[in-house]
Amino acid sequence: MLELYILLIFMIIGAIVAIEVKDLLSSVIAVGAVGLGLSIVFLLLKAPDVAITQLVVEILCLIILIQATLKKDLPFSTTGRWFFNTVIAIGFIALFLYIAKDALQLLPEFGNPIMRVARSYLAEGLTKTGAVNLVSSVILDFRAYDTLGEATVLFTAVIGVLTLVRRQGRKKENEVIEKDDE
């Protein structure tokens, strides 16, 4: 399990670089490094489906972010309430960590999951659904409602993007024409 710790520390260093570097393109590429490290961690934790999906999604995410940030400047503003903002952010994170300390103790020990529901999935998956890949049988048969909800969210996001991107609406065009006429 040593490689797991090394990869996690690599991801933490990558995240710190991503948020502190001043160039936006370097920041986005550092996020890509964090995502690829996460993909290898998924593979080590015996989740090949998630690893494949994380790998390809990371590549697409990187392309979209690079397209958004290419040739744009980063005005680095040091004015304003720098000290006040930092103190509030760190205070909030300290409060979060204090509450999370109790929650961490209630989690099962690493390596011994509570498999109350999953035990029956593992035992009856093949006879009930016929699928060999048990993750596939969970997302498309036992818990297909989740996938339906996911499809709805994805559809809404695509519609939102297409709405935001389209050219200016009809009403505004008329206004412009009227102004021109006047």
């Binding site: 015996k46 489906d49 979209i64 972010l65 999935y121 993750v135 969970v138 989740d146 994805l154 996001a157």
Partner: peptide
């Protein structure tokens, strides 16, 4: 290993990409 959280994360990753875009 437990297949149930893996199935939840699989959907969550794709939703994350859509929300990011």
């Amino acid at each position: 290993v437990d297949p149930l959280p893996q199935a939840l994360v699989l959907t969550s990753i794709v939703i994350g990409l859509a929300v990011t875009s």
